[in-house]
Design a protein around this nucleic acid. Sequence first.
DNA 1: AATGATGGTTGACGCCGTCAACAAAAGAGA
DNA 2: TCTCTTTTGTTGACGGCGTCAACCATCATT
Lengths: 217, 217
Amino acid sequence: MATGRKKSFDLKEACVQAARDVIAEQGIEALSMRDVARKLGISHQAPYRHFESRDHLLAEIMRRCFADFAEHLDRRKSSDENGDHEDMGSAYLAYAAQKPLEYRLMFGTPWPEPAQHPELVKYAVHAFDILRNSQRARYGDGPAHYAKADLDALFVWSTLHGMASILQANVMQHLVLAPEVLPRLKADLMGKIDAALEASSLPAPKAKKARRKPAKR
Amino acid sequence: MATGRKKSFDLKEACVQAARDVIAEQGIEALSMRDVARKLGISHQAPYRHFESRDHLLAEIMRRCFADFAEHLDRRKSSDENGDHEDMGSAYLAYAAQKPLEYRLMFGTPWPEPAQHPELVKYAVHAFDILRNSQRARYGDGPAHYAKADLDALFVWSTLHGMASILQANVMQHLVLAPEVLPRLKADLMGKIDAALEASSLPAPKAKKARRKPAKR
DNA sequence: AATGATGGTTGACGCCGTCAACAAAAGAGA
DNA sequence: TCTCTTTTGTTGACGGCGTCAACCATCATT
């Protein structure tokens, strides 16, 4: 009753995997129910036993992408306990660079009716919360600075998401940039995020934290 | 030979307009050639006399969107001669907010094969150049600081594009934010962009420019 | 008047998502 | 074991899509 148990081959799972493969290779617009069925050697209606519609399959895949994304962010962050957002930023950009089409699916594709897919919403919000908590940690505990932390989190998210999107944007490949720009892009971005956050936390009478890592670099 | 002259009704133009309407109201995925034809009361193949394929119609629309976007940015900028990026930022965000689906079409939709649509590329690059020139103007003339200006422009673009996208992102409507966050979002963002740019131009031994506007306004 | 280009129509083809009806298979209760 | 029901998968349709092919109307040019 809880979950299907021992099927020789779990068709639902196979559908998700096949669909994810298609999306990762050809993008969301190339995904079709019939194609999934064909790849699995089943009839074109078989997947509908497990997913009410194409949107439901899509929602399931998006949910998993958000879960993977959150896990990816969490892993990187915990590798350095101080939770410096530099690690977060690198992890964020790395994910977007490694899985561009999944990233686009999460953040650049209209969602199916969200009311019908509460799990999707939950996982997506959770991914943002990682970013938000990283900012809240910079201020003290307690809700006194929640608004400030939210603003910071949205700024960091904007900038990271913006960079991730831009690097994949079609127009990017046609811009003629100074040659040293691209290699420096990431470090420059991190530096600017850093500067903006320090400047925004200074006017507040909060004690100035030593946020930079002490050693070189 | 140059351009069609006196047609009672220019079908090509009508197709573009009808298609833009559909996109502006329902988004790119709702656009179909047959629908356009139906709306214009013509046969389903008539549009193909003017556009080789759906992608070609799409490319033409994207080109016009970039042209409108660039004009929009230029207009706002020229209203205040000093070209402060605050105006640019407002104009950028305003366009994205007013024409969300067109914005998504330009920056969030995979392009048709760019080699086949050079005009599209040209107009898109031109839109970026407005942003870039605004940053170059902050430094002196000459190519000495082109790399710096490019980095700044990409940072500003990242942040603006990120914010514009995020505000339209599906997940945004499900985040529970402190109530004062949303109203302050834009001003906070502009402040942080400002701070980041000032900090990044300071370490260079260039004279510190009085970048803020002097008086009221 | 004959010609050929231009712009439009009709009809097909093979995709697509999805509804409806059916068949096989797998448990559950007797 | 033999039914009966639920689950799972199949087949076949329907209408919509992009686009190819063939045909037709209009009109400027020779």
